[in-house]
Write a protein that binds this DNA or RNA. Structure first.
Lengths: 133, 133
DNA sequence: GCAATATATGAACATGCGATCAGACGTTAA
DNA sequence: TTAACGTCTGATCGCATGTTCATATATTGC
């Protein structure tokens, strides 16, 4: 196979190349790097989207909302099988990232999913889970 | 509005009701609870799927594979902008969860995405990111 | 006013996880 | 064989995150 074909990679895409690392296919690396979204975008995707779904309790809350439509905190807590304080903390997080929204009526707070991409991701995930191997 | 309509909820779905929590709409809670996947399924989804995507470095690795097709460790490291040891650790994790697969050729290891749901999730996420608000 | 309820918040604690370093393993060329 | 190389692994450290308890805020009914 083609050994390390040439000299050191000058990681051409961006101006600064970190170190002198030897690459197998520098051209392809450059292409791939150029296709990646900006760092902030990836961070937001990882922490702000997938990170929120990476917890069983939050997942249960969101799936409950996907199924139930609009639920108050205590019903959500019961549905997800968690304490009300933990539920409130979780909903606060989800609210901060615009994944759920609140409607307040007296001392009750009714939560529901924001229309958006997370809903689609949840659907895809559940779809897969249901007729899974 | 309907106050707490009746007595304490006897959370009818499963046999054991944890505590005496008062619910607003016990019937709907039961319906929602019944619709949720089993605990192990939710855990696997959270930890084994979304959890793997909840890290910017792993996301970059996977997006690199989605774009580049099949890449060796050092090219992946360069693409994602991370060290080779960290890359190897990350790939080990992804491999354990059947998200990526290896082809070994001599001392090189070429990684690629397993065909599957993660690929779809990645596509959905990237789709959204690209024409985002 | 007061008490009870529904939710929200803050702080403390434990646990887990990612980054890093040093070294091990298997492979190739000399 | 030795040496260079690509990759993998284990151990450690420090930070982030979820859980819990206690309390705060807000609203309803007495």
């Amino acid at each position: 196979m083609n050994m390390r074909s040439d000299v050191k990679a000058s990681a051409g895409t961006s101006s600064l190349d970190e170190c002198e690392v030897r690459l197998v296919d520098p051209a392809r690396v450059d292409t791939v790097k150029a296709s990646l979204p900006a760092a902030e975008v990836v961070d937001e995707l990882a922490d702000g989207v997938f990170g929120l779904l990476a917890d069983a309790n939050r997942l249960r809350l969101l799936m409950s909302l996907l199924e139930g439509g609009e639920l108050c905190v205590c019903d959500l807590a019961a549905s997800a099988g968690m304490g009300e304080s933990a539920t409130s903390h979780a909903l606060r997080l989800l609210r901060a990232h615009r994944v759920v929204k609140v409607r307040r009526a007296g001392r009750m707070a009714y939560y529901s999913l924001c229309d958006g991409h997370v809903r689609l991701l949840l659907d895809v995930a559940l779809e897969h889970v249901r007729h899974a191997s």
